[in-house]
Design a protein around this nucleic acid. Structure first.
Lengths: 333, 333
DNA sequence: CGCCATGGTTGCAACGTTGCATGCCACGTT
DNA sequence: AACGTGGCATGCAACGTTGCAACCATGGCG
């Protein structure tokens, strides 16, 4: 296999300990010795053994990212940024998919298989705040999204209420009055959808528009298919609408396709706004108006937070980090 | 921290070795002893230490996936399937992004930081076959895509020549005669683009259509922006076209947006076909005709191949695995 | 001249696990 | 009664690394 410290030591005629000193760069080593050891290292192509370091030092240099599904564009983009940010901190990122399954999420809270990782970035979906709170405190943990765990766990997220309000207000500013909201998830304890409805309702109230429950459409998941189906229902049996605010870009893209196929013109007959600003939306026809969360900031803050937990005080009070968002207006509204 | 075998052993009043036997399930352990040990394990919430197992056994249970970028839909979908497939084999997947950078890819060939992983699934982009071939044989490796490393390394891929021929033939069957190909990459040694051009030319030749170099458009990357720009160039300065075959769905989506904005009707004025069958294409307007590679098969075969290398003969002859593909016709053609 | 500080190097131990060899006991056989 | 056998349990060692403390020169100082 690969060379070990011992073999390098034998080759250089020094002790194992001295080679270790050279490798780790620190400590007092005579320049001449260092050179000799370095030569042996190069010849044998020595590479430190991660397993031994992990065992000895208790750090693996690995961080897990647990998300519902990596194939979804929003999580894909986020994962990409997290990988980059992790690399910047000489960590490596391990991806777990929960599929939005509660048991799966619960399992991860207890620690990723055998304490392999130094920390966990979790985007909970099905788990209730209550369950999140009473987790066995194994690995340092950061949550993505507003999970309302009573400030007991570190969070990183945009302000969903404000963002949803911004999006809805924009549609109102465009003169729309019958604005539907697609993306409620009453079957989940997940607080994100609830916050977005809240922001939506706030904007309506501020503008003096009535809140019509028939305009609030629930979905199972946040995929394109769900958005498509929601619009189908809305057009078939719902009240007339002149705008839709979708809680994700995926929902919005599915919604747009169905609306276009039904012969509606976007934005003339129906204005559409999404949430996430994934690349698909920018290249859709028409290009999608959306809420743009600062994803770089999410990635950066999440890992900063994790780093602080890992090397700092694990019992420090939980932080709730709110990252900026913006409204990006495009052709769909 | 977490309990170790020793602590469980003390609690259960047996030796460390016996606890190990219980944990690993094997060996001869008296039912009564097993029960007592199991009780101690549960009480202390013992979980085997991955670092120690890795050090002792030489297996980490980790596999790395190295791709240009996870945020790209094709790689996102593939990564999702690989994560699932890995889980099925009780492996965990670690994601590395090369950004299509040659140095980065080269670095990974030498082994992922300190032999952390048992295997590597690499989707090379910038690296030449020659370089791939003379890699230091560190970790077991499987390549995604047709990299033409002279049969010296394991590969998993669709037959790009045949697939490109199928797509082009379909456009010809639709009565198109001026068919452009977007996605050539003469600046890269990467063989995939070259194979797709070949398939495209074969189909033209079979149909007796002339091969016009002005209809073969090169791009830097395979993003939507590149497709959009390619179509812009084509419409501005190129010869007239009535169909486009793009080497990726992303290129096709970018191409469609630009064409639609230029007032062209799809498919009436311009038929478009892509490659990859990512979800975006299915929900685009019009829905995108494309080549559908069996991604599940790619994920499955890649990990099977890796598993064989890891636990089997590392010097066995390299395998070239070709997975099935299909032509999926939708509204864009 | 002896002592101490300093620079440079080293050995030991331990992190948690498992392969190997061995030990112990009870039972059945000769 | 002595012996072998098989079921069960254990001790030792090693995987590669690093913290700790000790070690040995050397040279400066009292």
């Amino acid at each position: 296999m690969s060379a070990s410290l011992r073999q390098v030591a034998e080759r250089a005629g020094v002790s194992v300990r001295t080679v270790s000193n050279v490798v780790s760069g620190f400590a007092l080593v005579a320049p001449e010795t260092r050179a000799r050891v370095q030569a042996a290292i190069d010849e044998l192509q020595y590479r430190p053994n991660a397993a031994a370091r992990h065992l000895r030092g208790g750090r693996s240099g690995l961080v897990a990212l647990a998300i519902p599904e990596i194939a979804s564009p929003y999580f894909g983009e986020l994962a990409g940024l997290l990988v980059e940010e992790a690399e910047r901190r000489s960590w490596m990122l391990l991806v777990q998919q929960t599929g939005g399954d509660a048991d799966h999420e619960r399992g991860l809270l207890g620690g990723v298989r055998g304490q392999v990782v130094d920390g966990l970035v979790l985007s909970p979906w099905a788990l209730s705040p209550a369950e999140l709170r009473r987790r066995p405190d194994a690995v340092p943990l950061v949550l993505l999204g507003e999970q309302d765990a009573d400030g007991l766990l570190d969070h990183v997220a945009v302000d969903s209420v404000a963002a949803a309000r911004d999006a809805t207000r924009h549609l109102i500013d465009r003169g729309r009055t019958r604005i539907a909201a697609i993306g409620l998830q009453p079957h989940l304890e997940n607080g994100t959808a609830a916050r977005r409805v809240e922001g939506y309702r706030q904007a309506l109230a501020e503008a003096g528009l009535p809140a019509d429950p028939a305009l609030e459409i629930a979905v199972q998941r946040l995929h394109r298919a769900d958005g498509a189906e929601a619009v189908r229902r809305l057009l078939d049996t719902g009240p007339p609408v002149d705008a839709i605010f979708c809680f994700s870009d995926q929902l919005a893209l599915g919604a747009m396709q169905t609306a276009l196929r039904a012969g509606l013109r976007i934005p003339e007959d129906l204005a559409v706004a999404g949430f996430d600003d994934v690349e698909d939306g920018r290249y859709a026809t028409p290009a999608l108006t959306t809420i743009t969360p600062d994803k770089e900031a999410i990635a950066r803050e999440a890992l900063t937070c994790l780093a602080d937990r890992i090397s700092g005080d694990r019992t420090a009070p939980a932080r709730r980090i709110v990252v900026p968002h913006a409204l990006t207006v495009r052709d769909s509204s």
